[in-house]
Design a protein around this nucleic acid. Structure first.
Lengths: 370, 370
DNA sequence: TTTCAACACGAAAACGTTTTCGGTGTATAA
DNA sequence: TTATACACCGAAAACGTTTTCGTGTTGAAA
């Protein structure tokens, strides 16, 4: 029994501790070695577990003398309370889970960063789960963790979930009393706190920006409609055109389904139409548009202007760098975490109404527009 | 007491269950509502907790009859065992923690992705902690989680930790019997499992590649030496030059300390020297070199060739796309997770010797070299 | 000397599991 | 009828905490 031998390593030292001779300076060297529990300290010091616990928490019930003795001993063995036991007792884990479709998307990475910051400031840990855009993985993750492992969820829906419109797993979790905050890819069918950007407005502004520059034939590279943000951004684009009495031309609108091999579709869009500007709903589409334009002998921004969405690594370091709608992921994640934690620490479900926070976007002008 | 009223909602149904009339088809509708425990089921069914537990685990000690009754009831109330309680009992949390300096670096994001995959396959969850390149945050995170919250660590050292060379927090954790796997930014001062790439060799190969193309004046953009990978890559570069009897010119070697505002340094390097090729130790430096070269009127790859390190988003989508040393983060994370889990599930610390796995790199040829 | 408060500490319950061990009751064999 | 076996079930310990309540000792006041 390794845990026992531990107590005989520094017999001399311990006896001195017991006799209230505290040698703090000598103690730090012996910090190492296995986990020690209240029970073990209690046994060794010939007091009860309660006494040890109270001593360490500086309870007034305990005499100055034993308190110091216990604390010195605990320090010697580097006692730290077991978090799992505390979680069980308190019915709180101080851990929140964020479920995102993919981590390699820069935007989601920044959101995690924002969540982590705020969570840590408030003493929470962050569990990251990747749904991989899969409905099943989303469900499994949630069911797995909803059984005491965490205190609440922050999530952005997977594509498949948005397509199926099946949200039973989320409803169940909420019904069990566990708070959920959705961000970015949300749905109206679930009642919970949400934090989003005004995709519609942002797209409208971006398109308007192009129109103001004098462009008439503005292409749109979007996603299929079941991706909520794709749909909203498409609507914003259309609204801007209508507002300026420009014709909506179906062949200028490209809706990409597959995230692989979309280069050809974009090349076709650019080749077969007299487009003088493009609004792309993400930075991948934007940078690909630049590449394909170059291949067709069209220079950016001289021959064609391009605006992207999401201010990530690509937009910043592409040549030319890309004018884009900046969507502050860090702020978004931070806000989501704040909302979740506030709800967790509210006096037992005030059942106060759910809120939807809108993070403002900003158009970052770079080299891809003129 | 909300938890009680629950038991009176569907009184009729329950009575039928008790009388062994199992109506599975009707059950699914009532899945919702709060967490139910073994104790509650036991009380309601007038059996002991042990019986309920055994029934649900299909113990042979329990009669077919009560087993079915209990299982039907548990299903009705969507019983799921409490993970925290299980963790406490089993002294295993089935959670591993990955500590990385920053999540917005594409490479680290891919590592997380690899860790997540392997972890999930083996029934583990992944807790992500960001050290933010800070020693203190690294220490706090580790101390916080080493108290039962997780089963093991996967980590890459923060810059500050590498600079201070203070690894006491890691030693302590290991001494407590918690396995640690280090990746990418590792140190020889710690004995544990590691997974790295052969930075030296990879840099050597990349430099050799440039030399083979006929370049003589090859610049190096590296980091300061306390960043282990920066140092190793620098050594590889120097070795390649020496091997080919090329002069090592100090003014062709740029060591960047600050990750902000390094553009000027790079511009100076390119402006003040007759450089015909550059090897950069990460993709940020590589893409910046391209930008600065362009500003100086030098075209890539016509006037100057550039090789980067880490095959990330930037290298792929930059124009021109960047020839780079591909460092497979997913594979690296997967390997690290595999090593950690194997150690966790080994028959109680065989104390088998620690291993260091080397992930092979690959030179991905793109447009930035000719 | 008796009474009472203050003090210092311990026992035990609770959180939700799993598992070991022991104890019923019934049926079968002697 | 008695002994044995077996099927079925419950009590209790264990994981590591915190907290409530109870209890014994001490000293001072009556």
């Amino acid at each position: 029994m390794k845990t026992f031998s531990l107590f005989h390593y520094f017999k001399v030292k311990i006896d001195r501790i017991k006799n209230n001779v505290y040698l703090y300076s000598e103690i730090s060297i012996y910090l190492m070695k296995r986990k020690v529990t209240l029970k073990q300290i209690a046994r060794e010091l010939d007091v009860s577990i309660s006494t040890v616990s109270k001593s360490l928490r500086n309870s007034l019930e305990i005499s100055e003398d034993t308190r110091q003795k216990v604390q010195a001993f605990a320090k010697l063995y580097n006692y730290k309370p077991n978090n799992i036991a505390l979680s069980l007792k308190n019915k709180k884990t101080k851990t929140i889970c964020i479920i995102i479709p993919e981590i390699i998307h820069h935007f989601f990475a920044t959101v995690i960063s924002g969540v982590e910051n705020v969570a840590n400031e408030n003493g929470y840990n962050v569990l990251v789960c990747l749904s991989d855009e899969s409905f099943d993985k989303e469900v499994i993750n949630m069911e797995m963790l909803a059984n005491g492992s965490i205190d609440g969820f922050i999530m952005s829906l997977s594509k498949e979930t948005q397509q199926k419109k099946d949200f039973h797993h989320i409803v169940e979790v909420i019904n069990q009393g566990m708070p959920v905050v959705m961000f970015d890819r949300v749905t109206n069918e679930i009642l919970c706190d949400k934090v989003i950007i005004d995709d519609n407005l942002a797209a409208f502004n971006a398109t308007q920006y192009l129109i103001d520059k004098g462009f008439k034939k503005i292409g749109l590279i979007s996603t299929v409609d079941y991706v909520s943000v794709g749909k909203l951004r498409t609507e914003g684009y259309i609204k801007a055109l209508k507002n300026n009495d420009l014709k909506i031309e179906e062949n200028l609108i490209l809706k990409i389904e597959d995230t692989e091999n979309f280069e050809e579709s974009i090349a076709n869009l650019l080749a077969n139409n007299e487009i003088d500007a493009v609004f792309a709903v993400n930075e991948l589409f934007a940078v690909t548009a630049i590449k394909e334009a170059n291949k067709l002998g069209k220079k950016v921004p001289e021959d064609i202007s391009i605006i992207g969405f999401t201010d990530g690594i690509i937009s910043k370091y592409s040549s030319p760098s890309i004018t884009t709608v900046s969507q502050n992921g860090v702020k978004m994640g931070g806000k989501a975490a704040k909302m979740l934690i506030e709800r967790l620490e509210a006096e037992e479900e005030d059942e106060e109404q759910y809120k939807t926070e809108v993070i403002e976007t900003e158009l970052v002008e770079r080299e891809s527009t003129k």
